[in-house]
Write a protein that binds this DNA or RNA. Sequence first.
DNA 1: ACTCCATATTTCCAATGTAAATTTTTTTGT
DNA 2: ACAAAAAAATTTACATTGGAAATATGGAGT
Lengths: 204, 204
Amino acid sequence: MLNNLKQNRKNYHHGDLKTALVEAGLAELEEKGLESLSLRSIAARVGVSHTAPKNHFDGLRGLLTAIATVGFQRHAAEMLRGVEDHPPGEARRDAACNGYLRFALENPELFKLMFSSTLYDSDDPDLKRASSESYGVLRGVADGLDWDKAGAPGGPLRTEWMLWSLVHGYATLLIEGKIRRKDNGHPLFQMDEIMPGFGYRPNS
Amino acid sequence: MLNNLKQNRKNYHHGDLKTALVEAGLAELEEKGLESLSLRSIAARVGVSHTAPKNHFDGLRGLLTAIATVGFQRHAAEMLRGVEDHPPGEARRDAACNGYLRFALENPELFKLMFSSTLYDSDDPDLKRASSESYGVLRGVADGLDWDKAGAPGGPLRTEWMLWSLVHGYATLLIEGKIRRKDNGHPLFQMDEIMPGFGYRPNS
DNA sequence: ACTCCATATTTCCAATGTAAATTTTTTTGT
DNA sequence: ACAAAAAAATTTACATTGGAAATATGGAGT
């Protein structure tokens, strides 16, 4: 048992166990699913004992917090992909939303974790930073959409919430199998499929 | 131990253990949360051994399926509350959506279970029936909204998906603490807060 | 009364997360 | 260079959980 563990690495000290555990967790997550994820299986994948993570994370909850943090970072990056290629307006909105949905469909288990607040520590500084970064992308493309009329009830957050709710709800319902996209080929997702006619009006 | 179990009921045979377990499960769910729910605690609450449920459900998964089924039934009922009081159109749409959100906010753990497809058997006939019933209410109020223009791309389901995505995303983000409603008093939820200007046009 | 059978219990097992004590390696201070 | 301290990892132990198998219980029908 001890030999088994040691044979996969040279040193008693792993060197960078912290990031190795997060990477192993990300892999296990998509392979086994969020419900079947276990601290012991993640540790075994890295080749350390199941109590080794304790030195780097506050239990399973702490490890899940770190994994979710990486998730939000990748989420933001996926939304940003292609956003700069388009001028502000509907094109950017669609690019960001497509990124949102692409990420969710390609990393469903990670996405579920990120939006299961009870599973991790929502007050963790790193997580809050990554989460805000991700939300910031949506906020950026929501700015200027014509729902955002001055004087509309609900305050300035309304447009962001509306856009977020729409794309997040669609992602969730797709992932959970409540809605099935018709598989009409390669154009992975067109925001207009679900929200056509939601116009854009540049700020005066 | 045996005496402890028996003292809470007269007979060795419970009589209606199946429904008792579902009710206990619903109670435990909101008290302890979805993540902490356990078959043993549910059985203990009813006063039977932890293997007694096996005679009525196919393991924890089966029990969760039955609980989710009741959830969808109540969900549909909550949406229907007040719908008949309004004429078809925006008023009914808002009534149904308010019901959707009211249910989600008042039964957050049950709501999470209902939309965690991996936790239960989505092919169960009773569950499918209840789930369809719930979706049918939304479908009913979506019919005739002016997003549903003839010839619009995406097919006839688009309007339903859009409405569903919007209200479901908002509910999810609220429950998971990603969005915080400002607590402006009693009017629990106003659909217009998030989706003003989404017009209604009666079928010609 | 007697048998059958659904229902419930007891006992056992493997997997999991956590805590405490211990061992091994690295770093630090002189 | 060397001993002490700190860091990192392991071993051991334990409570919980879901499930399987064997056993006990009591009611229904004859």
